[in-house]
Amino acid sequence: MLQKAGFKEVEQVTETGFDSSPATQAMLFRARKLVLFDLGKNDPAVQDAMATYQSFFETVYAEGALDRKTKHLIALGASLAAGCEP
């Protein structure tokens, strides 16, 4: 159901033990909304490239000596100067 909603990297991480009844189990889930999505979703080679790019993108924009907002503003300035189409 998470994947149908558009989430990627869906993980059922673990049980917590706080079950509300004998018929249920408490679980922890996480998922992510990818930055770039729905491109070439049926082509494994494209998916692989996209996942690698996604990982590169997140590493570049991770909080560091410069915060995320500053990095994005620099990138915006650079792309405007370079005349990048949206």
Binding site: F7, T24, Q25, M27, R30, A31, K33
Partner: peptide, 14 residues
Amino acid sequence: KPGGRLMIADQMLA
């Protein structure tokens, strides 16, 4: 937001 994360704890039917 793109890149955003969902973190859930919930009951599943066993």
